[in-house]
Design a protein around this nucleic acid. Sequence first.
DNA 1: GTGGGCACAGCTCGGTATGG
DNA 2: CCATACCGAGCTGTGCCCAC
Length: 349
Amino acid sequence: MTETIQGVSEWNALGDADLDQLAVSLRSIFDRFPISQTPNESQTEDDLIWPILEALGWSESLRQQNLSPRGREDVPDGLLFDSAETKANPNTGTAPIFRSKRDADLTTVIYGNAVPLVDRSNCTEVKAWPVKYATMFHMTNDSGLFRTRKELEEQESAYPLGGNTFGSASGNWLPLYVGRMVHQFDHRAASVEVNEANLHNAALSGAVSEEQKADPDFVPTPQYRVPESEVDLPSGIEWTIAFRDIARATDARTMIAAVIPKAGVGNTAPLILWNDEDQRADHKALLLGNLGAISLDYVTRQKAQSTHLNWYIVEQLPVILPDKFESVRFGAKSAAEVVRQAVVARQSG
DNA sequence: GTGGGCACAGCTCGGTATGG
DNA sequence: CCATACCGAGCTGTGCCCAC
């Protein structure tokens, strides 16, 4: 090891003065450390290990985030990165393309105050929130299941049941949501209108008027409906979080997520499902608030290189841990209460 | 070792809508 | 008329897996 170190150019570039300064710095850290008081692991990390790593020049690091009182034994106490760029894309380790150094600095600062939604940087999967990614219907592969209203009425003898649902002898039919039908906190953002004359891109967004928005019974019209029996959601789930897969860094918002009702959903609106028994609606509201945050959207823009918000991008986005929502307070209210109220007000508006 | 199948990231393309 | 914003499908290269 000594031989290898002595062969490294960075080592040879170090002058005696630099080494002396480092030695003084390290000795000072050791001298301050209270060995006689049998410090615990946490204190040893805080007062000895991390200061030494900093003195050695490791400026880019991530400390373990305590997700539960039991602590985490499956991940290391911390991660060291060779550059801010590597730290800014913690899972893939690829360098985001920043337009300016300020963008890189801001992104790094944001990651200093948040954690990736799903952290795979240590080859194990550590989820800040108990989420999983799902797409329901593929717009090409599953198109055999889709029916337009005309096809439903003519081929299935279907009849409207209200709320965008149709009934038929073969069972009920639910609307097929696509990305354009939702916007931030809005599951009624647009209908899908079809221009048959346009052979290339026939589906267009149909504007929803203020009057329609004011009607609580209004639902946007989808292009297709799908058999209810094919709608694969965990039992008991009547709504879930969806986001737009098609998104560009130049759009007004790149991350657009909303609660949508139980329905068919196309692959351009991927779902974020909860993967455990704890289906707390208040937690889902907090994550939705997180996905709507300007800071998260800003980071999304740094990472979105194409027109698809693939899961590998979304899972690296910076989110606030559930515990932090509870511990940070604004006057009498916790951050969780403030965000929850805002999210519910906007989504139901 | 090779070739087919497949998934996916990255990119281009063609279209509509809006505003200066 | 032009620039910009918005929208989603399709193409291509790459890498992995697996059967032969």
